[in-house]
């Protein structure tokens, strides 16, 4: 842990990513205590008000402006980040657990299990992910749970393929035979001996997936298939604001910026994490 922080201090990009990410998570977690205006309550007298820093701390101030029904954009962005981060992390973790487990299973067992699972992956890769997501959400109906399920569904194959490849080489290592020789069962070998060896690649895939899923979640919301109004979400804000893009630029700029910054920070942090766990690049610095 100490080494981790030390190495992070040395990497400028990684450090920026980590700080930004921490800040976003912090704001999202403590949003209810931040004394923000109600993100769902409109004020038609103040609709499409531009960003202003006058009277910043007085009630009714809108530092980032308001949308077409007069809701505070800053407040909606912060509350929207709660939904986005919740959806993205749950989907990443869910997809990660399923994908890693199936990847280990396919890679270790080989044979029929492997062939069936990998063909399933191939089939899914042949279908555009967005189309698949649209199909599933349209069939199940949009809700927080369904969005998470859909995003996890598009995510597990990435873990499964990478983990399977790792396991293919790991299972030939002698320590697996040693484990057999002390009487360990197949289940035990897969989850006690192999799993800790693939946690690092799984973690790295996870950070890359997090960035991808945030974008995908926003895209789903943009198309109206994400979390339903009045719950604020970044993609929804973009969708609603794009009509006013020429007259009220702030309606789309700030939520767009939020998406960009979040994805950027996750990517920067993820890149550093990958370098950190790869001994070849770690020692070069």
């Amino acid at each position: 842990m100490k080494n981790l922080i030390k190495d992070l201090m040395r990497s400028k990009a990684g450090l920026i990513g980590a700080i930004l990410l921490l800040l976003i998570v912090f704001v999202a977690v403590f949003a209810p205590f931040l004394d923000l205006p109600d993100p769902t309550r409109g004020d038609l007298r103040a609709r499409l008000a531009g960003p202003t820093w006058d009277g910043l701390f007085s009630p009714g101030a809108h530092p980032l402006g308001t949308d077409e029904v007069g809701r505070d954009i800053l407040s909606r962005m912060i509350h929207g980040s709660r939904v986005t981060l919740l959806v993205a992390t749950t989907a990443v973790v869910l997809g990660g657990i399923v994908g890693t487990a199936l990847g280990i299973w396919a890679g270790y067992k080989g044979g029929l299990v492997d062939r069936v699972l990998m063909r399933l992956v191939d089939i899914q890769l042949a279908i555009p992910l967005m189309l698949l997501a649209l199909l599933v959400v349209a069939a199940l109906g949009p809700s927080l749970r369904n969005v998470v399920l859909v995003l996890a569904l598009t995510s597990w194959i990435r873990y499964a393929r990478i983990i399977r490849a790792q396991v293919l080489s790991l299972r030939e290592r002698e320590f697996v035979q040693s484990a057999h020789a002390i009487g360990a069962s197949t289940m035990r070998i897969m989850f006690f001996h192999i799993l800790p060896n693939v946690l690092t690649p799984a973690l790295v895939v996870g950070t890359l997936e997090l960035a991808r899923i945030i974008i995908m979640d926003s895209a789903l919301s943009f198309l109206g298939l994400g979390v339903q109004p009045p719950t604020p979400s970044w993609g929804r804000m973009l969708a609603d604001g794009r009509v006013y893009i020429s007259s009220a630029w702030w309606t789309v700029t700030f939520p767009g910026l939020a998406i960009v910054l979040t994805v950027l920070s996750v990517n920067l942090f993820g890149d550093w994490l990958r370098d950190y766990f790869d001994p070849k690049t770690r020692n070069k610095k």
């Binding site: 002698e174 040693s178 057999h180 020789a181 060896n197």
Partner: peptide
């Protein structure tokens, strides 16, 4: 295996799980 019959393999570098 491991109980009544113990085994030792050739390569001590890879017979132990590194993690």
């Amino acid at each position: 295996r491991g109980g009544q019959i113990g085994m030792v393999f050739q390569d001590p570098m890879s017979s132990l799980n590194p993690v």
